[in-house]
Design a protein around this nucleic acid. Structure first.
Lengths: 152, 152
DNA sequence: TATTGTTATACTCTATAACTATA
DNA sequence: TATAGTTATAGAGTATAACAATA
């Protein structure tokens, strides 16, 4: 297996040459810092993700929100329970299909979202500062291309 | 940034404009495909990560391996138990400090590692194909810079 | 019959604290 | 006293399957 081009011996890669390692650790540090920045709002990075999908109008029912975030609909229930208990989102049965819940931000939720999104952007900007504005855009484009190649 | 510089209303970002969202989903799809490619070797993406740290000589004791991978030393125990039961790694007490375990790949483990790393590289290459070889290198550089900015 | 939200449940991954053996 | 590995345990986060209400 060492000599044939069709079956090469791979080099031993250092962990930080591996894209998966880099993606995982970059995500972990960004999430950790965002959580710290959102602590005063009483929400987590994941909560902000849910609120952002709602605020962006990218989804309306619980199942649609879950699909955008890539989690199961059953996992969305507890997440929305907590946000509803905090008074930042509201659920109401859809007029057109009463099986579905229309999920919306409350007035307080919109304010919380704007403050939290501002803090989140600040963390993201600070952490990606060494890349420059162009670099961040290229990073986003590369990750989107990777996801598109995977059919996402 | 719409009116007052010190207290701007953030735009409502689409989820796929958010770096954290892109990092998380890119990592998930890469891990999922790597797991599928490694299934025939009987190891997971995480197992390969551990074996890579050992193979690269980036760490020798269990605690050092755990530190490189960013997990607790107690989490490393079960991980190594499974790999040792599979016969791909071996633990022996260090001669110089008998509290520490020197962790090494067995002969079979080295072969498993080479096959698995080859499969892992193939998955990574296929998924990052639309970026081109330069694009992948720029992606790695950007993620390393981000981690370096965070002190990692 | 199929679908939405829900519940009960279990599984994976992880960390914390306490233990042991060594230093 | 401090450290490496281990164990017991608990907390997130997740999914699967079954149920009620509705389509």
């Amino acid at each position: 297996m060492a000599t044939r081009p069709s079956d090469p011996t791979p080099p031993v890669r250092a962990p930080d040459e591996v894209v998966g390692y880099l993606l995982k650790h970059a995500h972990l540090v960004l999430e950790e810092r965002t959580n710290a920045a959102l602590a005063s709002e009483g929400i987590t990075t994941r909560d902000l993700g849910v609120m952002r999908v709602i605020a962006a109008g990218a989804a309306r029912s619980q199942q649609e929100i879950a699909a955008v975030l890539g989690v199961d609909r059953s996992s969305m229930v507890a997440l929305l329970d907590a946000l509803e208990a905090d008074g930042v989102v509201a659920r109401r049965p859809s007029d057109r299909d009463r099986r579905r819940n229309v999920v919306e931000l409350t007035d307080a939720g919109r304010e919380t979202f704007l403050r939290a999104e501002r803090a989140s952007i600040e963390v993201e900007t600070r952490l990606t500062e060494p890349l420059g504005a162009d670099g961040v855009q290229r990073l986003r484009a590369a990750l989107r291309a990777l996801l598109a190649a995977a059919g996402h």
